[in-house]
């Protein structure tokens, strides 16, 4: 049922469905309540929804105060307004003091298409990942958004939950499965390549996997839904014997999943690492699908880049 309702609606539904199990859970918004999919929660639990107006810094501070007194505040807004407008509040109140606040970044990546670069979440993971104690989760699809919200409510500590994709996100999961913060999930098994992805790029990696398989290249796919703390054990295990390690993310290549994986290997051993992600630019605005295609973030383009890199590494021309 969660499969295609859109990431924001999934967040709203998830909050609504766990509200009774977590009576201390509160929903906070900076005048984006309805845009956060929270309308049903606002109707049913009026007294547990707090709108702070267009004031993200104040929202984080208020949430920290509420968390200090035992509440579990979920705050939501668009990714840059939380991760950057309020990043110093997140650093002090959530990182330094470790207050139990869940920060839900909506429409991260390029999903807000015609709203443009002011609203895109291009570099949020990079900022959040650098702050000590901030657990960072990037769910792969609507079902996993639900799983993450539930797991984050249970988890005692600050979390940044990055929602990518819009309405009609391709589903990765159709059946129930076990989700654990910090434990990546192996979705496909192969021998030649390890693809590590998160967010919407998991579904694209699966598409790429099919194309590669038809060309005789087999790949592991790891859903690295938690980027911090990162599941290094799985990376290590699945990277052994692979010709190429590929990271795919809907985020700048500076400081995100690719960087995290590269940081891991730089302290370990030499690997061939292909980083697929967004370039370091504020590009032109277009539809979500158009942008994914132009940045090489479709199944077809990802598989093409992988094949090209494998050939190059072997000394063949494309």
């Amino acid at each position: 049922m969660w499969s295609r309702i859109g990431s924001r609606a999934s967040y709203g539904q998830a909050i609504l469905s766990i509200a009774d199990s977590y009576p201390n859970l509160l929903g906070l918004s900076a005048d984006l309540g309805t845009s956060s999919g929270l309308a049903p929660f606002m109707r049913k639990y009026k007294e547990r929804f707090i709108n702070v107006g267009i004031a993200e810094q104040n929202m984080i501070g208020i949430a920290a105060g509420l968390a200090k007194e035992g509440f579990i505040p979920f705050v939501s807004s668009f990714a840059p307004f939380l991760s950057m407008r309020a990043s110093e509040q997140i650093r002090m109140e959530l990182g330094y003091m470790q207050h139990n606040v869940k920060v839900v970044a909506l429409g991260s990546g390029l999903a807000l298409n015609f709203l443009g670069n002011s609203h895109y979440g291009l570099e949020d993971v990079s900022v959040m990942r650098a702050i000590p104690n901030i657990c960072t989760v990037v769910p792969a699809d609507c079902a996993e958004i639900f799983k993450s919200i539930e797991a984050c409510a249970k988890y005692n500590g600050p979390v940044y939950i990055r929602l990518t994709g819009g309405v009609g996100n391709p589903p990765v999961y159709t059946d129930d499965y076990n989700f654990q913060i910090g434990k990546s999930i192996l979705l496909k098994e192969g021998a030649d390549v390890l693809i590590i992805a998160n967010g919407t790029m998991v579904a694209k990696a699966i598409e790429a996997h099919g194309i590669l398989e038809a060309k005789g290249i087999s790949a592991d796919i790891l859903n690295m839904h938690t980027i911090k703390p990162m599941d290094c054990e799985s990376i290590e295990k699945h990277s052994i014997g692979k010709e190429l390690i590929v990271t795919v993310e809907e985020h700048t290549k500076i400081g995100g999943l690719g960087s995290a994986v590269s940081e891991y290997f730089s302290n370990k051993r030499n690997v061939n690492h292909l980083m697929i992600g967004l370039p370091d630019i504020f590009g032109k605005t277009a539809s979500y699908e158009f942008l994914l295609n132009s940045y090489g973030l479709t199944g077809e383009k990802i598989s093409h880049t992988i094949i090209k890199t494998l050939k190059k590494n072997k000394g063949y021309d494309d």
Partner: peptide
């Protein structure tokens, strides 16, 4: 009660704590 040093943080937290007191 709180780590501080960066200015302009305390009052927001105070609002949150006071709201919590009302809710409880």
């Amino acid at each position: 009660e709180s780590s501080n040093g960066s200015l302009g943080h305390g009052l927001s937290m105070g609002v949150g704590i006071s709201l919590a007191a009302k809710l409880k």
